[in-house]
């Protein structure tokens, strides 16, 4: 008897999302195999054994209240959030204010301008397996619009040795059909009209460091 009552109430107060728009970009070789022992090896003297255990799981990242940001990326927009009490604004977003005196005030969504400024930067000559072919990669932490925080992303359209602190940037999105609703849907490029400064000692040093990286990447299949 009680069960029916509970079920009815649940039905009334919780609206289950109906996922109508679906897209899969899973590479063909990715499979969830579950847990299994798939092999072993034993040393020549018979003293040591290694066993190969495999598991590969599919996770669902439920973006929940952060969904608007990630859905915005699909649409070529950068959404930030703002605290209605103190006015602080963020990308990456916060769904509640970080000021202790705002007592976790719920924030409101604001569309951010598609420009920013380099806060700090680095030139990667090594990375995760999936990014090796794209090396060297310039990573910047940039402040978008009036955000109180910096967001990390790649900077394209510039030589690795020409990046500067505080340089102005624009946000550039991938073509719509290539977007997946992740921060990699966009990257930064130098703002229109930006010109690199003349070559100097540090630029020469970065050149020296990235030259072998360019060469090495060419040898990758």
């Amino acid at each position: 008897m009680n069960e029916t009552v509970v079920l009815k109430r649940k039905d009334r107060i919780v609206k289950k999302p109906d996922f109508t728009e679906k897209k899969s970009y899973r590479p063909v070789n990715v499979k969830e195999t579950g847990l299994s022992f798939i092999g072993h090896e034993i040393s020549e003297d018979g003293n040591v054994m290694n066993q190969f255990f495999h598991y590969d799981q599919l996770y669902t990242i439920r973006h929940g209240w952060n969904s608007k940001f990630f859905k915005g990326l699909l649409e070529g927009k950068i959404w930030g959030t703002r605290c209605p009490k103190c006015g602080d604004t963020w990308v990456p977003v916060r769904t509640h204010c970080w000021n202790l005196d705002c007592n976790l005030e719920k924030t409101e969504w604001v569309e951010m301008p598609l420009n920013g400024k380099v806060h700090t930067w680095t030139v990667a000559g090594w990375s995760g397996r999936s990014s090796l072919k794209r090396l060297p990669i310039i990573l910047v932490y940039a402040v978008i619009g009036k955000s109180k925080v910096a967001i990390a992303n790649e900077l394209h359209g510039i030589k690795p040795w020409d990046v500067e602190f505080e340089m102005s940037l624009k946000v550039v999105f991938k073509p719509e059909e290539d977007r997946i609703g992740a921060v990699t849907d966009f990257h930064f490029e130098p703002a229109d009209g930006w010109e690199p400064s003349p070559i100097h000692q540090e630029k020469e040093r970065i050149k020296e460091l990235v030259e072998p990286v360019y060469k090495w990447v060419k040898t990758l299949k």
Partner: peptide, 9 residues
Amino acid sequence: RYELIVGGI
């Protein structure tokens, strides 16, 4: 969501 996917390491 914000860093692993762009920085990787």
